[in-house]
Design a protein around this nucleic acid. Structure first.
Lengths: 183, 183
DNA sequence: GCGGTTTCGCTACGATTGGTATCGATACCG
DNA sequence: CGGTATCGATACCAATCGTAGCGAAACCGC
């Protein structure tokens, strides 16, 4: 329909998905610090300069990778307990994806003292989930931000300390705890 | 008493406390990444080489700074609800200390892919609290690790996202939530 | 005081890395 | 086939972590 307005010239080779995958894979294998842009570019088969043409910094690239990796929340707004459980399980799987926790921690670290990156992080990663949760769960902003802190913070801390995703029994405790909290 | 066995030679100038303070201050002002060892050394008035003589890496220095900054937990083992509240408030104040959250996130990031640093982090920072909490609260290891994940993870996520400590109302919610969880 | 011992400060250096500049090659559209 | 915008490659700069080497300083026992 409106997809006919394509600008002239050589198109941006559509390898974004490949770059995201290579970013996660490289971070998973080497950690955030040693996952250099050079290596990510080489793993994708494109030039480093191409990456910097599309994303303004390494942090922005990793943030975009996280946004792409997380995707939309599977909440329906009918049964709050069910939505809480579904959202937490979704978060567990997303954070357990190889490289995601390390990427999160790394971009988190870079964001402190880099206000531009911090803006990207808050706008592109947190705001969508805040809005969706406020609407479908009918909670205040303060309440939603509290829940996001608890869920994502807990999962990241576990992944960071142990390197392993949270086991099912602990996830179920986390779900029950938050269902009680939001009742 | 046994402090008489001092080795000969020039003593290690006892500026550890100053180095720790300068580390936190520099990280607070510039963030973990831009808080270079050069700057920390300059802020203390000592040479960079001296820092590397005492700590094997920047991550180890920051971890030691965090251990020094946190200190022992004020739990008494008589009233569990009171201990939970006291421990959480203690964590809130420790994480709110300027530079602590940024230092934590940074050393967390470096620890992934640096097993030596990871060992230091787990042994020197987490283990003491795990043991104290298991003994005084009479909880299983799994339960204690879960609580540590929730408390520290939540506080760090809040500090990382907003740059501000958690407000009192949210802290009280966190305390009530965990008191119910541990009942 | 004085020698012995250990740490300290300083300068210089190597290796990596984030990020930029430049220019020719390339792929697409009409 | 020509116009246009992106891509790839190379070279480059500024920071930064971490190390080497050496002379100076500070402390102890005598």
């Amino acid at each position: 329909m409106a997809s006919s307005t394509r600008p002239p010239g050589r198109p941006r080779s559509s390898v974004d998905a490949e770059v995201f995958a290579a970013t996660l894979r490289t971070i998973h294998e080497l950690g955030y610090t040693r996952a250099t842009v050079d290596r990510i570019a080489a793993a994708t088969g494109i030039a480093k300069t191409t990456i910097y043409r599309r994303w303004p910094s390494k942090g922005a690239l990793v943030t975009a990778t996280l946004v792409d990796s997380f995707g939309p929340l599977p909440v329906r707004g009918e049964d709050r307990d069910a939505d809480v459980a579904a959202a937490i399980w979704y978060g567990v799987r997303a954070v357990a994806e190889p490289g995601v926790a390390a990427a999160f921690a790394g971009v988190f670290t870079d964001a402190i003292g880099d206000s531009a990156l911090r803006e990207i992080l808050a706008t592109q990663l947190q705001d969508p989930y805040r809005k969706v949760l406020m609407e479908t769960l009918g909670l205040s902003e303060q309440r939603v931000l509290f829940v996001i802190d608890v869920v994502i913070g807990t999962l990241l801390h576990r992944m960071g300390m142990t390197g392993e995703p949270m086991v099912e029994a602990d996830v179920e405790d986390l779900i029950r705890m938050l269902q009680r909290e939001l009742r």
